[in-house]
């Protein structure tokens, strides 16, 4: 009687392993690699490659991954960090990413760019969702993040098994897809994406006043959740506004955020827009994409200022004398410098 049961168990296991292998292989081949272009699609995933504990992790939208350079801050201040931002990262996505981050590599400080507090339930960009969520390891948080981010025509299963979404790429597969199927090279600089463009023309962006400045309910709800979660986990949270030069941010937003942050022990809010002059950001040289993002020059200035601020404010440690850290981070900084200089030369 026993043998058939063992046989059945073994066969069932074989079926499950085959299915898992099949899905894994197909997922790896068909998922966009974001290596030669759209490298921001790798920001979320490369977080798992951090070889040391992280002192700080920065969340938010593309303004963040173009503005905060962890390798630069390592070199100047000696703390380890990662920019886990992504294109159009909504507040609810930040919430799940923070949870996921704490689960894998609990930082001493979390910062969140609040630019996307303006966007609520009706905000939807599938490409950005994919870049943000597909990089997360399969977990309950990932599925919840997908559930809260997707629109009705999407399937939650396709976030667990991306082949269900990307199988349509079968007629556009390139050598890159096979080359990087097993392992993608590291393309970001600990989450930082270097921008080698600038907008020398100064335009006077029109300020469109609004009737109602209150945040959409979904964004507000998730910000509260983030603050509560950080409070529970006893991780300080810095709500911040990364400097940009477009006039779509209003003092009314600052007031609300200050008020919300004030209710929590470990939360503060800083709008770095107001520090642009102190940082020394040059409107003609340090911005790109219609002055909505910092380029490499702007990012280096901002990272220097921001790094000092969080080191002093939150007492982040200096690991530069610690071999465990320095062996990893010095190498990363070298890569950052080489690639940065090449890009900056092209920018000039």
């Amino acid at each position: 009687m026993k043998r058939p049961i063992y046989g059945l168990i073994i066969k069932s296991l074989c079926v499950l392993i085959t299915a898992w292998l099949l899905f894994t292989v197909l997922d790896r081949i068909f998922m966009p690699k974001y290596v030669e272009e759209n490298t921001d699609g790798n920001v979320t995933a490369e977080f798992y490659r951090a070889d040391t504990p992280l002192d700080a992790v920065f969340f938010g939208s593309s303004t963040v991954y173009n503005a905060i350079a962890p390798d630069k801050m390592w070199n100047e201040f000696g703390f380890s960090s990662y920019t886990r931002a992504s294109a159009s990262q909504t507040i609810w996505q930040s919430y799940y990413l923070i949870r996921d981050t704490v689960h894998y590599n609990r930082p001493k400080l979390v910062t969140l760019d609040v630019s996307f507090m303006k966007y609520g339930e009706d905000f939807y960009e599938e490409a950005s969702n994919r870049k943000t969520i597909d990089g997360m390891k399969l977990s309950f948080d990932k599925l919840m993040c997908a559930r809260d981010s997707m629109w009705e025509e999407e399937s939650l299963y396709s976030y667990a098994f991306p082949i269900l979404r990307f199988h349509s790429r079968w007629n556009e597969l390139r050598a890159e897809d096979f080359k990087y199927a097993l392992r993608r090279p590291t393309v970001t600089y600990d989450g930082f994406i270097m921008g080698f463009r600038n907008d020398p023309d100064i335009e006077n962006y029109e300020v469109v006043e609004k009737e109602d400045y209150s945040f959409p309910p979904k964004a507000a709800e998730y910000l509260v959740r983030i603050m509560e979660y950080c409070e529970e986990e006893d991780i300080p949270l810095l709500l911040m506004k990364t400097p940009t030069y477009i006039n779509n941010w209003f003092p009314e937003y600052d007031r609300q955020l200050e008020e919300m942050a004030g209710k929590y022990r470990n939360v503060e809010y800083v709008n770095f827009d107001y520090c642009a002059d102190i940082i020394g950001l040059d409107r003609r040289a340090d911005y790109m994409d219609g002055h909505s993002h910092l380029n490499i020059c702007g990012a280096e200035k901002f990272s220097g200022f921001f790094g000092k601020y969080i080191k002093d404010r939150y007492g982040l440690p200096d690991h530069r004398q610690d071999d465990t850290y320095s062996s990893v981070w010095n190498e990363r900084y070298t890569r950052y410098c080489i690639d940065g200089e090449i890009g900056k030369a092209a920018l000039k």
Binding site: F30, E153, E154, S155, I163, H167
Partner: peptide, 8 residues
């Protein structure tokens, strides 16, 4: 999985 006509 690859050639099926399904999904977004």
């Amino acid at each position: 999985l690859v050639f099926g006509y399904y999904g977004l």
